[in-house]
Amino acid sequence: MTDRQRRAAIEGWYTLEKDQPHLLGSRCVACGTFFFPKLSTFCRNPVCDSTAFESVPLSRTGRLWSYTSASYQPPEPYVAAVPFVPFAIAAVTLEHEKMTVLGQVVEGCGVDQLQVGMQMELVVETLHQTEALDVVVWKWRPLGALTGSAS
């Protein structure tokens, strides 16, 4: 797992640092509203007519709003391993941005290790593999957990 090359599953949505990656959003320079995914055209706040945005990293941590599991293999374009490995899914509320962002939970962390209200942090982990490289995506894990499993 160590030396394989990595590529973002969705270009420009998150940074790829192994340590402390973050989601990449944008922020309206007029009203301060955050957007994820990034917005660069017209602000969606109905009382704001701004067209100017700055790229910003979003908070790396937040509170678990809710969670679930994908116990069955999702359809394409999801690329499943053979055999399919079920995974957990989290909705995490970022306090500073006042928004909730969905994402997979890291490998090895099941719903039994999650609780609404707990602190979660962002990581980047493999979504699927090609022969040459790991295609990686943002995921959530319980804050302070060293690997996939909560400490």
């Binding site: 809710s66 994908a70 979504l127």
Partner: peptide, 20 residues
């Protein structure tokens, strides 16, 4: 397209509301 690519199906949303 994005949410299916990352494995988020319709029941995901229903379940998030239910767990909440």
């Amino acid at each position: 397209w994005v949410r299916f690519y990352v494995g988020i199906t319709n029941p995901t949303y229903f379940a998030l509301y239910a767990r909440r």
